[in-house]
Design a binder for these strands. Structure first.
Length: 204
DNA sequence: CCACGGATTGGCT
DNA sequence: GCCAATCCGTGGA
């Protein structure tokens, strides 16, 4: 079991950088969410970068709206959106105020609170192998497991409710890139970053 | 006011 | 592998 008690929270200046710099360095770090007495934690294993200034797939590409306004704030806040009538997805806002860039958290490897994640996803804490790998291997699944919804939109990641702990990749692990998943515009940009061969990544 | 479609998921053929 | 489910922000009329 990974011990996360000695790890340090990523500070504001980590997030206030170029979105690609943040995205490629995020895998391996530990995403933490507190909900009352419940604690959820997991290693980020897959992300995608969205940059409103050049990227037609970004929600922020056409300018600020009520839905995406958090994306235009300073880096280090959580942007949560609702999609397909059913799912929440969460992003880490990056860069400076007004920039409109963020990193989508696409997949997580559960570390703490796994039984509770299973209850949130399946209504039972009994996990077989298939369910174990399906807990958090997608943006909607991860939000469901971590109890993240629109009420968490705009959360400050330098606070004590949702934050990310600095942790290095394990020996032998490496981050590789590909094009992004599920989009119809700017499909050619190689802005997906994930840990090679990690079984919790959403798709190969 | 109303129609459209999405940074997905899971169930069915 | 294909496709329906299901909501609501957004943009056009």
């Amino acid at each position: 079991m990974t011990d996360i008690s000695s790890l340090k929270k990523l500070p504001r200046n980590y997030y206030v950088r170029n979105v690609l710099t943040v995205a490629e360095s995020l895998p391996g770090n530990i995403f933490v969410r507190k909900k009352g007495k419940k604690l959820y934690a997991g290693r980020i294993v897959e992300v995608e970068a969205y940059d409103g200034s050049v990227d037609e797939a970004a929600h922020s590409f056409k300018g600020k709206t009520k839905r995406n306004e958090v994306m235009f704030g300073q880096g280090g806040f959580l942007y949560v959106y609702f999609t397909y009538g059913a799912h929440f997805c969460c992003n880490v806002v990056t860069g400076k105020q007004g920039e409109g860039s963020a990193v989508l958290i696409r997949a997580i490897e559960p570390v703490k609170g796994i039984k509770r994640m299973s209850i949130n996803r399946y209504g039972t804490d009994l996990l077989n192998d298939m369910k174990k790998y399906n807990l958090t291997n997608g943006p909607g699944k991860a939000c469901s497991a971590f109890e993240i919804n629109s009420s968490d939109n705009g959360m400050d990641l330098t606070g004590d409710i949702i934050f990310i702990l600095n942790a290095a990749l394990k020996p032998g692990e490496k981050v590789i890139t590909s094009t992004r998943i599920g989009i119809t515009r700017s499909v050619q940009l190689p802005w997906r970053f994930f840990i090679k061969d990690n079984p919790f990544v959403s798709k190969k």
